[in-house]
Design a protein around this nucleic acid. Structure first.
Lengths: 130, 130
DNA sequence: ATAGGGCTTCCAGTCACTGGAAGGTCAAGG
DNA sequence: CCTTGACCTTCCAGTGACTGGAAGCCCTAT
């Protein structure tokens, strides 16, 4: 398969697939004309990568997961540990965003939003000084 | 004030303050020895920037907010619009993370996490293929 | 022969910093 | 006066994960 077909099949941009090759996540063979030639295995790996990335795993986590995916003698505990650590990161991010949201929402609610200059949002950002 | 004092007072790293000068968010004067010399106004702006950044506003949003902060004839509606747009972004991000969290959490719950290779997490990432 | 689409590589840019090297400045201590 | 150490300066490079674009080769159809 050429890169365009793989991009179509996986939903990943061709640019991204080339990037994944560059950093060693996939290693497609080359045809005589220099074109990348992706095997079914490469395709599976790219689908896997796409899903892992869409769940927010970092590239390095993806690399580790892919190695476990390829290792038929793996312990599922190793996979679960990575996933659980990532869950903790997600929860932290959600908590951070909710805190931002709460503060900002209060400020927005307090602001008249008219043509006058008085603005609780700006006062809040300045630290109640003006 | 020297940059170290300002860093102390604002909680921003000196590197970040220099970066903010480079991109034109603050314009401290220079002392005879070449050191940056921050006014109270600069300090206020940096506090403002620190808070706006901590609420997740982008640098360009911060630039716009800072301009409104400086403009005593502003309309609070302009501030409110920026803040509301940012709230929408935050909500989108939270929704995205919650979706990730839900999917990943299900996979983690389904995984035994023992020394055997069978792993619902990997199966899920591969698309139920193995 | 030419037009088009797809493929290749390489370089640069994104965002908001962050780290580090090389060197100037200043106050205190000997 | 000299040194030490903390501070300051600039400049360059790297982060993560791509993304855009230029220049040029390959293949098929007309």
């Amino acid at each position: 398969m050429n890169i365009g077909d793989v991009a179509q099949a996986t939903g990943l941009p061709a640019k991204t697939i080339r990037y994944y090759e560059e950093i060693g996540l996939v290693t497609p063979h080359r045809a005589a004309n220099g074109y990348r030639d992706f095997s079914d295995q490469d395709l599976h790996n790219l689908v896997f990568l796409g899903r892992a990335r869409s769940l927010g795993f970092t590239i390095e986590e993806c690399r580790a997961l892919l190695a476990l995916y390829a290792d038929k003698g793996r312990a599922s505990a190793d996979v679960k540990r990575i996933a659980r650590e990532h869950l903790v990161q997600i929860d932290a991010k959600i908590a951070e965003l909710r805190a931002m949201r709460a503060t900002l929402s209060d400020l927005v609610d307090a602001c008249a939003g008219d043509d006058r200059p008085d603005c609780p949002i700006l006062r809040g950002l300045a630290g109640e000084g003006g």
